[in-house]
């Protein structure tokens, strides 16, 4: 999740930094032809990017009209398929598998909000308290590493550790206990998924918090220490208030991203634990749309998710902006 949330905090905060650089006259002052003559190299530079964005973002985004069609790629295509209005959506809301996907997605988001979200904060505080710079850099290097592994790799590694033939079960068996296969146990699937997420991304997630910690004025600590505040009081009264704006921002952005719990992680483990616990929004779109060939139906599910996600993100951004303006910028 960290990459996703970082992302948005970046876009939001880039805007205030915009300054007119280069030969930037205000629009309207220079005639169009003169601006074109001046700026055409920039347009040429942007062209490949815009072409790719058009092909793989704009056209698919507009292609969502098939959600309102009884789409058949062979007989009609996007122009010839009959328009059926909201039939796909009506069917969707009556589909028990879809409702299960919604419930699972929201359940996993809520669970990880409690059991994943605080982990990077705690880890950042722990790292920040390591005095030796070299040791700290080493530990940071180690904990960032799993972020660069693919989900296939993470699942494979967890399988070798916690699976029925994995390291833990093997050690337990050697000592006369019976091993447990965590990888195929659907009751503990949510724990497994969260553990995998922590292992992969908790270290990387500390970056934002470490950056925020580095901006806290060290004089505050000294003044507090002189006034007799011990370690824990300093953390409570200086460190945590210093982190609060970032925590609030990331929390709100995570809520705005509530429908995204990842895709590969669940696809990969679906056959091991069954769809009852592993069906989430994105896997539902895949199975209902691509696997069964009911493209219109799958597109409807995808469009529903996209639109709800859009609304959530815009609302979250508004809230974050309101809070962020006061919190993040007041110090600098």
């Amino acid at each position: 999740m960290s990459a996703g949330t970082d992302t948005r905090s970046v876009t939001r905060q880039v805007r205030p930094g915009e300054s007119p650089a280069g030969p930037a006259a205000g629009p309207g002052k220079t005639p169009f032809s003169a601006r074109l003559r001046r700026d055409w190299p920039l347009l040429v530079m942007a062209a490949p990017m815009l072409l790719l964005v058009t092909a793989f973002w704009w056209i698919p985004a507009l292609g969502n009209v098939i959600a309102f069609q009884d789409y058949n790629p062979f007989t009609g295509g996007i122009l010839g398929s009959p328009i059926i209005g909201f039939t796909n959506f009506a069917e969707l809301f009556g589909d028990p598998q879809f409702l299960r996907a919604v419930v699972n997605t929201l359940g996993i988001t809520a669970f990880q909000l409690v059991f994943y979200f605080p982990v990077p904060i705690a880890l950042a505080l722990l790292l920040n308290s390591v005095v030796s710079g070299k040791l700290r850099a080493f530990i940071q290097g180690v904990v960032y590493l799993p972020h660069f592994f693919s989900w296939v790799l993470v699942v494979a590694i967890f399988q070798q550790m916690f699976g029925g033939a994995g390291l833990i079960a093997q050690i337990l068996r050697d000592h006369g206990y019976s091993g447990i296969d965590w990888m195929t146990n659907s009751d503990t699937f949510i724990l497994l998924v969260t553990a995998e997420t922590v292992w992969k991304d908790a270290g990387w997630g500390t970056i934002v918090f470490l950056a925020a910690l580095s901006t806290i004025d060290q004089n505050l600590y000294e003044a507090a220490a002189v006034d007799g505040a011990r370690r824990w009081r300093r953390m409570w009264h200086i460190t945590l208030p210093g982190l609060r704006p970032v925590i609030v921002l990331l929390l709100i952005l995570r809520l705005g991203d509530a429908l995204n719990v990842g895709f590969e992680q669940f696809m990969l483990q679906r056959s091991a634990v069954g769809s009852k616990v592993s069906e989430v929004f994105d896997t539902f779109v895949y199975w209902s749309g691509l696997r069964t060939g009911d493209f219109g139906y799958g597109a409807a599910a995808g469009l529903f998710k996209g639109l709800v996600g859009l609304v959530l993100i815009l609302v979250a951004n508004k809230v974050a902006h309101a809070l962020g303006e006061r919190g993040v910028y007041s110090r600098s």
Binding site: L50, W57, A61, D282, V285, G306, I313
Partner: peptide, 21 residues
Amino acid sequence: MLFCVLLMFVFFPGLIPTYLM
């Protein structure tokens, strides 16, 4: 042009239309 890129942050066009494209 900036709008074009920033829009990618807030909306995902969906798996099915991308696949068909």
